[in-house]
Amino acid sequence: MRKSQEIGRSVVSVALACAVMACPVALVGCNDDAGEQGAVATTGEQPAEEQPAEEQPVEEVQSEYDVTIDGATVTTDYEGAPAMIVDYSFTNNSDEATSFAVACSQKAFQNGVQLETAIVTEDLGNGYLAEIKPGATTTARMAYSLTDQSDVTVEVSELISLDDTLLAQATFPAA
């Protein structure tokens, strides 16, 4: 029975990794300016200072992954619209190598509505998709499109779980 669970988990991990990889790939080339490949609009504004997290208590959870939400920075996306970059730390305590993208679901909300991911000009690094070995820790950065200047609540849970127990939660000001 244990071997079949491992095989099932591997199949689900591969399927999820493919789905996650397909999203950014589908966005490449979604530019109305044909012939201006690689052109990026900049506003000349400097990103705002990193906002401190208003930590919210999360009940102690038995999980194969340790996640902290380390901070957030208000910035703009590639079109100049408001966005927020959230910094995460991810530790893999499982028996197999995995990535933050495959192991966890991270969501940001404003006014109770989930925010869409944003495309920003800042380098977010490879921590979100990088596979890490058991016991290793990496940092990941995700960008979200802001809808207004209300607070942003960020939640992280295991991607595949029988319940929606949060691994981490924090609230940041968007203004």
Rank of each mutant, 00 (worst) to 15 (best):
P82I: 05
P82D: 14
A83P: 01
A83S: 11
A83K: 02
M84H: 01
M84S: 07
I85R: 00
I85S: 00
V86E: 01
V86Q: 01
D87V: 04
D87F: 01
Y88H: 13
F90I: 06
T91E: 14
T91C: 11
T91V: 07
N92D: 13
N93A: 12
N93P: 09
S94F: 08
S94P: 13
D95V: 10
D95E: 14
E96H: 10
E96R: 10
E96I: 12
A97H: 07
A97V: 08
T98R: 11
T98Y: 12
F100K: 07
A101R: 02
C104K: 05
Q106Y: 11
Q106I: 11
A108G: 13
F109Q: 02
F109R: 02
Q110L: 05
G112F: 07
G112C: 09
V113I: 13
L115A: 04
T117G: 02
A118W: 03
A118H: 03
I119E: 11
V120Y: 08
E122C: 04
E122K: 06
D123E: 09
D123H: 06
L124N: 07
G125M: 11
N126S: 10
N126Y: 05
N126C: 03
G127K: 00
Y128S: 03
L129D: 09
L129A: 12
A130L: 12
K133L: 12
P134Y: 08
G135M: 09
T137P: 03
T137W: 10
T138L: 03
T139E: 14
T139I: 05
A140V: 10
R141L: 08
R141Q: 15
M142S: 13
M142R: 10
M142D: 11
M142P: 03
A143R: 00
A143Q: 03
Y144A: 01
Y144D: 01
Y144G: 00
Y144R: 00
L146N: 04
L146K: 04
L146P: 02
L146E: 05
T147Y: 02
T147G: 09
D148S: 15
Q149K: 15
Q149C: 03
Q149P: 02
V152I: 11
V152E: 00
T153C: 01
E155V: 10
E155D: 13
S157F: 06
S157R: 15
E158H: 11
L159P: 01
L159W: 14
L159A: 15
I160Q: 15
S161K: 06
S161M: 06
S161E: 15
S161N: 15
S161F: 04
L162V: 13
D163K: 12
D163Q: 13
T165I: 02
T165W: 01
L166P: 02
L167Y: 00
L167F: 06
Q169R: 15
A170E: 09
T171S: 07
P173M: 04
P173A: 14
P173E: 08
P173H: 03
P173K: 08
